[in-house]
Each structure stands twice: as structure tokens, then as C-alpha cells.
Amino acid sequence: MVETHFPELDATVPPPPRRGILSTASLYKLAIYIILIVAAFIAMVPFGYVVSTSLKSTMSLFAYPPDWLPDEPTLDNYRNLIDRYPFWRWLMNSAIVAGSVTLIKLVVDSMAGYAFAKMRFPGKEPLFLLVLISLMVPFAALLIPTFIIVRELGLLNTYWGLILPGLASPIGIFMMRQFIESLPSDLENAARLDGCSEFQIYRRVILPLIKPGLVVLGVFTFMTQWTSYLWPLVAATKPQMATLTVGARSLTSDFTQDWGLNSAAAVLSMLPMILVFIFLQRYFIAGSIAGALKE
């Protein structure tokens, strides 16, 4: 694997000189951390409240004013969710759809990105302009035509039906082109002279070198798919094809809202995403730097 450690990540600005007992430097540090902790608190609190609610018993949910923390934490809501609803099935569906879209997009977009970044061919500029313009198309607007196409292909309520429309998004092509363009051309030239075909250059030189970029695109795509709601809602009408987002939403009927159950579903559906992100976080930042978005 390519070394993607960026020492600058931990670099800091030299502190101003000491003055008195409480130096300006440590006051400055203190302010920095107070700001960060407040911001982290705001980012976390709603989520923490959901976790807390998911651990409350049905009874304590109706306490008013509500408690910040459950008196007697219970896993009942989680048990309920797993016993009464096809939760694992939803999770699997989401994993299959998000995983497939991510894998296919990484291959397909990096190939197209390579062509746009490094190859010479007629029609390159107009085609890339088309990609840029299509970034502006709102997906919700294409819902009906996409629905009709998928229905005509007989793919409603299938995994392919959920996966294929997700592959159309052009943002990955754009991101990959930016990444690959920043690689020195002499590398592929050297590979060309070493007897590589264009596909071998892509496979053996380009791909290993844009790993940070692939992580960024991968996390981004997986995230978008995992959180996607509108398309699975219309394309998967059968309960056994529902993804997590659709399933979690179905817990809320028009008449009742079981806050505890909803919260448990929310916690469980976010957990995989959070784990993926924490694991890849360092590469993600490094990748964003490497691809430092240029005009």
C-alpha cells in the first residue's frame, strides 16, 4: 500500500512566546479546545439523545419533562426491532446495494477518469463538458423516467433495479479525473515505454497511486447509497427488498410513532457507516488533500 501518512496533519503553528504564569500560548490552546468541544457537543448531542432514547423503556418514554438519560437502560427496543421486523434483511439489502454500487463505480469511474485525465481523443472536451453539466441534474426530477425504464427492464423489486440508477451519477468521473490528472505524466510515459498497454498502465500504475482518491470516492458513494431514500422507496415496494432507510421509515405509521423503536433502528442503521468512516478516516483526509480540488 502507498504510504499516505501526512505529517502535516499533526503540524501546528509555533506558539507565541510565554508571558506571565498563564502564557498566551496555553490560553490560546485552551480557547481552541473549548471551541472544538462545543462544536463536537452540538454535532453529537442529537445523536446521543437518540442513543439514550433507544435504551429507554416504553414507560419512561412518556415521562415529562423527558429525561436526558434513561433511568433503567434496557435493550427491549433492539430486541423488538430484531424480533418483529426483518431488520437483518434490511441491513443485508442496504449492504448489497451500497456495496455493489460502490465497487462498480470505483472501477467504472476511475477508468473514465483516466481517459479524461490522460488520454488524447477527439470529442474529449465536449464529452467532459456534458459530464459537468449533468452534475446539475436533480435526481428527483428523473424519478419518473427512471422508474419507467427500470420497470420496462423488469427490474422493479430486484437488486439490479436498486443498483443500476445509482451508477449514473457523474460526480465520480469528475473526482477521478481530478485525482488522476494530478499524477505526473512521466509515470504513465515510463510505463508506456516499459511495454504496458493502456489497460496495464491503468491497472498497475494509476490504480495503486490513486488509492487515497478511491477511498474518498468509495466513502462518498457508499455514504450516498446507504443514506439514499427516495429511489429505494419507489423501486422496492416489496417488504423483503426494503433497504434500511425505507425499513426504518416504515416503523412510523400514520397513527403511532414508537420513539424507542425508531431510535433503535436509527442507531443500528448508522453504526456500519460510522465504523467504515472511522476506519478510513485518515485515508479520507489524505485523499481529499491529494485531490486538492483544482479548477
Binding site: L9, Y33, A39, A43, F47, Y229, T245, A266, Q281
Partner: peptide, 28 residues
């Protein structure tokens, strides 16, 4: 400017972005 704990804060700040809208709406 944060010398230590930068990666923890980065993850925490990113948490809301990772939240599906369905869940975010519930949280909200």
C-alpha cells in the same frame, strides 16, 4: 491548530454528514 485529538474531532464533526436523512429527520 489542534495538536492532539484532531482525528477524533474530525470523525465527530463528520458524524452528522454520515447520517441518513431518515435518521437525521428523526434525530432532529
Amino acid at each position: 491548530q489542534a495538536t492532539r485529538g484532531g482525528s477524533v474531532f474530525r470523525s465527530v464533526f463528520y458524524l452528522p454528514t454520515l447520517t441518513p436523512y431518515v435518521v437525521a429527520a428523526l434525530i432532529w
